[in-house]
């Protein structure tokens, strides 16, 4: 037990990333607000980034850093477009409840 507590290795980082990813999955599954779902997607992307950086450190290869940088850029683009869609949906129907979004038109 003390070994697990005080001897932090790569498994700790990977398991932390897995837990964060699963919290994101749970958020996407159980919440109905589109904004919270977008935040959960961002959490999952961050967890994937942490896994990339851990593997990059384990294998001594800097490509993981490059890939994580690209993932961050894609996440920024995804957030901007996703939030624009949320604003457009809210303008049309006054709520962002994904269970009530059953059609693509206004």
């Amino acid at each position: 037990m003390g070994n697990i507590l005080f001897n932090v290795g790569y498994g700790h980082f990977l398991v932390l990333a897995a837990v964060l990813f699963l919290i994101g999955v749970a958020g996407v599954l159980i919440r109905r607000n589109a904004l919270i779902i977008l935040m959960s997607v961002e959490l999952m992307l961050n967890a994937a980034n942490m896994t990339l950086l851990t593997f990059s450190r384990m294998w001594g290869d800097l490509s993981g850093h490059t890939f994580a940088l690209i993932v961050i850029a894609v996440a920024a683009a995804e957030a901007s477009v996703g939030l624009a869609i949320v604003v457009a949906v809210f303008r049309g129907r006054r709520n962002v409840d994904v269970d009530r979004l059953t059609t693509l038109r206004h």
Binding site: L20, I23, G27, L43
Partner: peptide
């Protein structure tokens, strides 16, 4: 780790 997991739980 507690900060990140606590924040994530706060989100959902």
């Amino acid at each position: 780790a507690a900060a990140s997991i606590g924040g994530a739980l706060f989100v959902i």
